[in-house]
């Protein structure tokens, strides 16, 4: 038992090599999801009728496809029509597209709950639309989105091991390599689990801390 524990602990540093790539995948996917998500949210609120329909279908489709299937379509499928992406980019596209559908909902909910009166109040002071968006709507939308965003970030983090399926050397891949020589799958996978768990907690509390820094009475964002 003690030996196993020691074995787990001594192997964690070897697995840590995969942490950076896991974080990179998560951050890039979240960033892609954010850019598309914000765009989709705006189009769904302010777009024309047809535009609203198009983005609704977009959300509907990407929420309904498992990420692994999406990833395989991008990595193995798209090359057959001449679109070649490396494994890292494929993972980011797969996770990012899926995340964008969820993030769109988060931002749309935030913007809608702010209400049109805030915009009118800004305009009535003589501010431009852009000023009002920047100084009034955005600061509130960010606060309102933080809990949902934190949640989505940790979900994508936990989905990042899918990268293993296209051969990226992340935590799980390093674990696999160790098992081949050590024949200790239980200990090694447990070590992987610990790393993911700690990563999850790190980011969770990081975002919670950020939320608490932005906290304003009336926006109960830090205690989710």
């Amino acid at each position: 038992m003690l030996a196993s524990l020691l074995y787990i602990l001594t192997n964690i540093p070897l697995l840590l090599k995969g942490v950076l790539i896991a974080v990179e995948i998560t951050v890039c996917s979240i960033a892609l999801g954010m850019v598309i998500g914000i765009l989709v949210a705006f189009l769904k609120i302010y777009g024309s009728k047809n535009m609203k329909k198009v983005v609704s279908i977009y959300e509907w489709v990407f929420r309904g496809i498992p990420q692994l299937v999406l990833l395989f379509i991008v990595y193995f499928g798209l090359p057959t029509i001449g679109l070649n992406f490396g494994p890292f980019v494929s993972v980011v596209i797969g996770l990012g597209l899926c995340s964008s559908a969820y993030q769109a909902q988060i931002y749309r909910g935030a913007i809608l709950s702010i209400g049109s009166e805030q915009m009118e109040a800004g305009l009535s002071l003589g501010m431009s639309k852009f000023q009002t968006l920047f100084f009034i709507i955005l600061p509130q939308a960010v606060r309102l989105s933080l809990p949902g965003f934190t949640n989505e970030f940790t979900i994508v983090l936990k989905d990042s091991p899918l990268a293993y399926a296209v051969g990226i050397a992340e935590i799980l891949k390093y674990g696999r390599d160790l098992i081949v020589t050590s024949f200790k799958p239980f200990e090694i996978y447990l070590a992987c689990a610990i790393i993911y768990f700690v990563l999850f907690q790190l980011f969770y509390y990081l975002f919670k801390y950020i939320a608490s820094r932005f906290e304003v009475p009336g926006f109960l964002i830090a205690d989710q």
Binding site: Q118, E120, A121, L125, G126, Q140, R143
Partner: peptide, 20 residues
């Protein structure tokens, strides 16, 4: 209009204060 609206104050039924 941005210039002119400065000269017209508006008070809203539901206050519309900037909540943050």
């Amino acid at each position: 209009l941005h210039q002119m609206r400065q000269k017209i104050g508006m008070v809203f039924q539901h206050f519309a204060l900037f909540k943050h």
